[in-house]
């Protein structure tokens, strides 16, 4: 795996982003942290600096605003690995009734990521090295009635990453698709944590991701057992699957 002396985290104030920042800093990786809310971003940066000796820069960024993407990308040209973890968990029922809500979810979770990763991929390809780590979701492996708008966005991301990885093969640039299961973070605070064994905290997911990046993996299910759960779920014939409530 390519060297990881400097990493960027897009969405550093999210539960997973913060865990990644702490763990990367602990292993000596310099960081640039990006998020929309400057106050929260500074809180995370101060914490990471106090816990480690690495250099931690911050940059306020509104990922939804595609117009700013070139500017964001230009600040990341000296970064070895980019971790893209930001996202929203939309209200599925609201999305069914309100196109604006569905559109916003697709824009944030899929389109803006595709725009950013596409631009970064071009820069990294020219330079000849770099790793893009994109947090997708197990929800993107098969559409389910309980969250298919979110699943649509994450499914699009997974396919985009697959294509990008294929395109960049041999260029020195690598793409890692991360598919977490249920993570206990503020984004999922309103969901009842059942069954408890399927819920893990962000620190566990962060350490799985860092290990997978170091090992040069392509697709990562985290925790590992989701690979097998999804293997079963994606093989259920559609005429049965459409009747299920999963």
């Amino acid at each position: 795996m390519a060297k990881q002396t400097k990493a960027a985290i897009l969405g550093a104030t999210a539960g997973l982003g913060q865990s990644l920042a702490r763990q990367l800093a602990e292993q000596g990786t310099d960081l640039i942290l990006l998020a929309r809310d400057g106050t929260k971003l500074e809180t995370v940066a101060v914490d990471v600096r106090a816990r480690s000796g690495v250099s931690v820069d911050t940059q306020i960024a509104d990922f939804d605003s595609i117009d700013t993407h070139n500017e964001i990308v230009s600040s990341l040209t000296d970064v070895d690995v980019v971790y893209c973890v930001y996202g929203t968990l939309p209200d599925q029922q609201l999305c069914e009734q309100d196109w604006q809500a569905a559109y916003a979810a697709l824009h944030t979770n899929a389109l803006s990521v595709i725009s950013l990763m596409g631009r970064l991929a071009n820069v990294f390809e020219n330079r000849g090295h770099g790793t893009l780590v994109v947090v997708s979701s197990v929800a993107g492996d098969r559409g389910r009635k309980s969250n298919y708008v979110y699943g649509t966005a994450k499914g699009a991301l997974s396919i985009f990453c697959e294509g990008l990885r294929n395109r960049l093969n041999g260029t020195g640039v690598h793409v890692v698709t991360v598919k977490p299961g249920f993570i206990d973070t503020p984004m999922t605070a309103h969901i009842e944590k059942k069954p408890a064994v399927l819920w893990v905290d962000a620190n566990k997911v962060a350490s799985d991701i860092i290990r997978a990046v170091a090992a040069g993996k392509n697709n990562v299910y985290t925790p590992w057992f989701w690979r097998y759960i999804l293997l079963i779920i994606t093989h259920i014939p559609e005429f049965i699957f459409k009747r299920l409530s999963l």
Partner: peptide
């Protein structure tokens, strides 16, 4: 549990 941050660490004086 989420409010687990360091806010300042004076490494000379030993005050956190």
């Amino acid at each position: 549990k989420q409010l687990d941050r360091m806010l300042a660490f004076d490494r000379e004086q030993g005050i956190v």
